[in-house]
């Protein structure tokens, strides 16, 4: 067994004529927290969806635990998804289900846990992300944005996945709440010993979560390294991105 959890080689994905991923290579080690940064519309979400098998890439290979993911059957995919958890950008909570049913969804539907135990487990996980037990019976529409993110996080970690994806975990939150969520992400990822892949363009969040940072630009990973290396790099693209400047090699296409 190698210590590489996810290995992506030469990944291509296009929508019609628009090429989104153009020969992307990336490796994620076991237990590592990798953050992918990059501008809006550079294909960060597409990358995650390809790894999860929601989108099928035109070309390239994705190995998870040395097993090919691209082009496997629906059944295999379901098995694969049992290993994964995901925190969606907007939470993506099921609004017809109460908070605890959301959190316990994976436990009840896949691990066939009975309802009583599942509810207890859901409440335990909710407490872990800092929510009181009485939130469990509310519905997602009755929660604030920060609370929805917490519930989303609870749902992502409830099944104790080996790989967790975070899709812009701090978007739409104030800086303080962002920091709280970042802290929770760190805690839960380290607590589970899981491998984490986060995509974001919030640099504060990236610095806090990441063991390693990779920058995505024009469908390729153009730079990767630790947070320390990030501040010292003389890569002009990365420098422009972390300084948030409109002047530099990256031109914004309108």
């Amino acid at each position: 067994m190698s210590d590489i959890k996810i290995k992506i080689t030469n990944l291509h994905k296009a929508f019609g004529r628009k090429v989104v991923l153009d020969g992307l290579d990336l490796e994620i080690k076991k237990g590592e927290s990798l953050v992918v940064i990059g501008g809006s519309g550079t294909g960060k979400s597409v990358l995650i969806k390809c790894i999860q098998g929601i989108l099928t890439p035109e070309q390239g290979s994705i190995l998870i635990d040395d097993e090919e993911v691209v082009g496997v059957s629906e059944k295999e995919k379901e098995k694969l998804h049992a290993k994964m958890g995901m925190l969606f950008q907007g939470g993506a909570l099921f609004d017809s289900l109460s908070v605890w049913e959301n959190v316990a969804f994976g436990l009840i539907e896949n691990q066939k846990m009975d309802k009583k135990n599942a509810k207890m487990e859901a409440i335990r996980v909710l407490r872990q992300v800092g929510l009181a037990p009485d939130v469990a019976d509310l519905y997602p529409s009755e929660l604030s944005g920060g609370m929805q993110k917490r519930v989303g996080l609870a749902r992502a970690i409830a099944t104790r996945p080996e790989i967790i994806f975070f899709d812009e975990p701090t978007t739409g939150l104030d800086p303080i709440m962002s920091d709280v969520i970042n802290g929770l992400i760190n805690e839960s990822v380290k607590g589970l010993g899981a491998t984490a892949l986060t995509i974001t363009h919030d640099m504060a969040s990236a610095r806090k979560i990441a063991d390693r940072i990779a920058m995505l630009y024009k469908g390729k990973i153009i730079w990767q390294g630790t947070v320390k290396e990030l501040d010292k790099t003389d890569n002009e693209y990365v420098r422009q991105f972390i300084n948030g400047s409109s002047e530099g090699p990256i031109k914004v296409e309108v």
């Binding site: 969806k49 929601i54 998804h81 994964m84 995901m86 969606f88 909570l93 099921f94 539907e109």
Partner: peptide, 12 residues
């Protein structure tokens, strides 16, 4: 709102 993707990732 990505709820359908969420279903998929919860292997449903």
């Amino acid at each position: 709102t990505e709820q359908i993707d969420a279903l998929t990732t919860l292997s449903t």
